[in-house]
Computed example of a mutant assay.
Amino acid sequence: MTTDRATFTLDGHDVPFREGQSVLDAALAAGLFIPFLCHKPGYEAHGSCRVCMVRVGGKWQTSCTTPAAAGLDVESNTEDLVAMRRDLVQFLFAEGNHFCPSCEASGSCTLQAVGYELGVTTPHYPPFWPTRPLDASHPEVILDLNRCILCELCVRASANVDGKSVFALSGRGPTKHLVVSAESGRLGDTSFSADDAAAHVCPVGVFLPRGQGFRTPLGARKFDVEPLRIAALRRAEGT
């Protein structure tokens, strides 16, 4: 790759970058895919899912939070890193209640798409089968916490984009869970709206608009038509 811009290397490829870009954003813009879950362009990097982990100068770092810098030697597509990502995704499937064949988000779910990208097609770890509530108190949106992967995208969207701070995370470790910032704990008792950014940022199927179930048929959904790798690289073109 010939460029007058500063570059770093990713798996032996020269990657140009702009000042302020992360390793992940620069890689995607250059047409080199690194899997991710909690990352969203325009949102502050969070690094919570760890799926975008790479090795930089021999040290493991999240590529979404690592600033691109000239001369960095970055590895992503190595056997141990791919195995680590596969384990993380398998843990997420085991930790929640995910029923892909009957899920409204199937075909549009980033977790499912990353699983396919990494070759995760069957359960590997025994499921936890946690008890998680279904909040149907809101007139526009049903909140299904069974699929939450704790990426905090809705938390960040509600606080930083919508200016409402409707959501938060509570607990630690296995008890960590998404909560609604209302005395009742019910979504219907907040200022949340179906038009909020928080309603549309979830990478899985937590936010379900009422009256729209299976409006787009299975087989014609986002990642049914265009695999995650292609969709992410196309979205990053020109950024």
Rank of each mutant, 00 (worst) to 15 (best):
T2D: 12
T3L: 03
D4Q: 13
R5L: 12
L10R: 09
L10Y: 03
D11M: 05
G12L: 09
V15E: 04
P16Y: 04
P16T: 05
F17S: 06
F17E: 06
R18N: 13
S22A: 03
S22E: 04
S22P: 08
A27H: 09
L32T: 05
F33E: 07
I34D: 08
L37I: 14
C38P: 10
G42V: 05
G42A: 05
A45F: 04
S48W: 00
C49K: 11
R50T: 05
V51D: 03
M53D: 11
R55K: 14
K59S: 12
Q61F: 01
C64R: 11
A69N: 05
D73A: 15
D73I: 13
S76V: 03
N77E: 15
V82A: 13
A83T: 10
A83N: 12
R86L: 07
L88T: 13
L88C: 02
L92E: 12
F93Y: 15
A94Q: 07
G96I: 00
H98D: 01
C100F: 06
P101A: 09
A105H: 11
T110S: 08
L111M: 03
Q112A: 03
A113W: 05
L118S: 09
T122E: 15
P126Q: 13
W129H: 14
D135F: 08
D135G: 08
E140V: 02
D144S: 08
L145A: 04
C151R: 09
R156G: 06
A157L: 07
V161L: 14
D162I: 02
S170A: 14
P174C: 01
S181T: 13
S181A: 12
S181Y: 00
A182H: 05
E183N: 11
R186D: 06
L187E: 07
D189Y: 06
D189I: 02
F192H: 09
A198Y: 01
G205N: 09
V206R: 02
V206I: 14
P209K: 11
G211P: 06
Q212V: 00
Q212R: 15
G213P: 00
G219D: 02
A220S: 12
K222S: 07
K222I: 06
K222G: 01
F223H: 13
V225F: 00
V225G: 01
V225T: 14
L228M: 08
A231T: 13
A231V: 01
A232P: 07
E237T: 07
T239D: 13
T239G: 10
